[in-house]
């Protein structure tokens, strides 16, 4: 079985506990206006045209080969109290492939970093195979979610509920976009939702990536932020603290 991967990043320090290797799966059902990995949106390999020439982004990898490569690092990853994280793009779009890789990993802590927008059965299967789920929540308001990500958030909230009820260890992650996701209403609602997640380890508020627009031109896309990028984002950690929800700004 094969899947399409657009990067494998070693020494990932912000994708779960310890020193991790993160596998970025190509293709995403969302179109978040702040996405900083635009080359991960389309499902297939595509050319990226940069100053140093053109390169093909996205490698079709065999599940066995990928698992073998990751297993070779198992001992080193354990030394760093870390493991492997599957991110993207959106791993749920290649659920069968990811599951096949997960099945073959031996002695490695695993994390699934997902936007939650995917088939619930597939989500539960993958989540069940991982030691930790990093669950992205962007906007709690349905209309705003549609406007900024292109999709409805009902499926995302339903999967979050499934996850919450399962009691599986979970980190809820929110990208802080100034004036968009960092509003009191939104972060307050995130805090409320996170509080109901039984296995919640903590909420991670991700600092806005001011280099987000950097790669758009190279993959022939346009970055059009409808917010003031110069504005400092406001993590409003007190909203979480007041509900007793552990929170951390990354």
């Amino acid at each position: 079985m094969t899947g399409t991967v657009f990067d494998i990043k070693e020494f990932a320090l912000f994708d779960g506990p310890g020193i991790r290797t993160t596998v970025f799966l190509k293709g995403c059902p969302l179109r978040c206006a702040w996405c900083h990995n635009p080359e991960g949106l389309a499902p297939g390999p595509e050319p990226m045209v940069g100053a140093g020439g053109t390169r093909l982004v996205g490698t079709v990898m065999d599940a066995v080969a990928l698992a073998e490569r990751l297993n070779r690092q198992a001992a080193v990853l354990r030394q760093g109290e870390g493991g492997v994280t599957f991110s993207g793009g959106e791993p749920l779009l290649q659920a069968a492939f990811v599951e096949e890789v997960l099945r073959r990993l031996v002695g490695i802590h695993t994390a699934l970093d997902t936007c939650g927008y995917g088939d619930s059965a597939a989500f539960e299967r993958l989540a069940g195979r991982c030691d930790l789920v990093l669950y992205d929540l962007k906007l709690m308001d349905a209309e705003a979610h549609r406007r900024y990500t292109g999709v409805d958030n009902r499926l995302i909230l339903r999967n979050l509920e499934l996850l919450g009820n399962s009691g599986r260890p979970c980190v809820v992650r929110v990208p802080l976009v100034p004036g968009v996701t960092d509003t009191p209403d939104n972060l307050g609602a995130v805090a409320e939702a996170a509080r109901c997640v039984r296995g919640l380890v903590r909420v991670e508020l991700m600092a806005y990536n001011r280099a987000a627009g950097g790669k758009y031109a190279a993959c022939n896309r346009t970055f059009q932020p409808a917010w003031d990028e110069a504005r400092e984002e406001n993590p409003r950690t007190e909203l979480f603290a007041s509900l007793g929800v552990p929170v951390m700004v990354l």
Binding site: F14, G18, Q79, G80, A207, L250
Partner: peptide, 13 residues
């Protein structure tokens, strides 16, 4: 070196 956790991870490296 964004936070104390990351510093600890460099130590683990």
């Amino acid at each position: 070196f964004r936070n104390a956790e990351a510093v600890r991870k460099v130590a683990m490296l």
